[in-house]
Amino acid sequence: MLRQIRISMLIFLLLLAACGGSDEDDGAANAEGAPFRVAIVMPSSTTDIAWSQSMYDSLTTVQSEMGGEDALKIAFSEGMFRVTDASAAIRDYAAEGYDLVIAHGAQYGNSVFEVASDFTETSFAWGTSSDTGADRGIENVFAYGAVANEGGYVNGVVAAMLSTNDVIGVIGPVAGDAKLYIDGFVRGVTDVKPDAQVNVSYTGSFSDTTLAAEAAHVHIQAGADVLTGSAQQVVGAIGVANENGVAWLGTQSDQISLGPNVVVTNQIYNWANVISDMIAKIETGELGGTAYKLTFENDGLRLEFNENIEIADEVKEAARAAIEDIKSGVVDPVLLEEDDE
């Protein structure tokens, strides 16, 4: 018996250490001028240089704009790839009285609506989605998403101009998930070089860096000289591109640190405006109902060039022109059949 207790304690300690990754702040300040409290639940980590990091970086940007921790408190739970864990975290944050709870994943939809109907005084946001639950009578949920095909198109234009072999490799996560970005990318390539070959492969996972790295090898061996890809799995692939001196076009977050010599452009998701708008609305008592979209037009999407490497002016020019065309509606990056990424 005693032994069992000792062992249980040991395992408990192990588990405790394992949970060290998720930070929570419950220093609720009720005094006047109390900070706005926002919590975010995300499937990967704040440093995934992709989807989760884009939101976290935007939040910290808003935080410094608003005046630091005294104005905006951020709590987060990362690595919530199991929806049941995420669901519990969302409910916990709501119960702890956070002003805004962001569920940063399309897979969290059901959990958000379930918790939102129990905590009608709390505001929730989730994406990628355009569904605020209004048709179900839910009024305290925001939805958000990125029109990723716009940046995909521009990256496609850049890829076509950079490629000398006219073979370009794309590494997707789960089929269908990065569809907007990839469709836009293919369209961008073919608008510049109709005969260029775009090879798309999916790893079947968002986080399988090993397979994504191997996919990069495969594309390179199949002749590709420009690569792109989506989700947090791409870190390994960028490493391979870097090692082989093959150009990489990033999306979602700034990926230059991983491939300082090969990352040419990044489409960056800038959620700062969306977050600021949500906070403003919440403070006036509007807890949901808006569906946000990141576009070049509203500065939600940005295309950044790697300053450290030399990029031909004509490439930069073509990219800028493409962005202008999209903004003005001259170019429709893809036939937008679906709303969701």
């Binding site: 990967s44 980590s45 986080s207 790295a213 947090q232 390994g236 490493g239 391979v240």
Partner: peptide, 8 residues
């Protein structure tokens, strides 16, 4: 891969 990522 020459990179480290959480849960890589």
């Amino acid at each position: 891969q020459n990179v480290f990522q959480e849960n890589m």
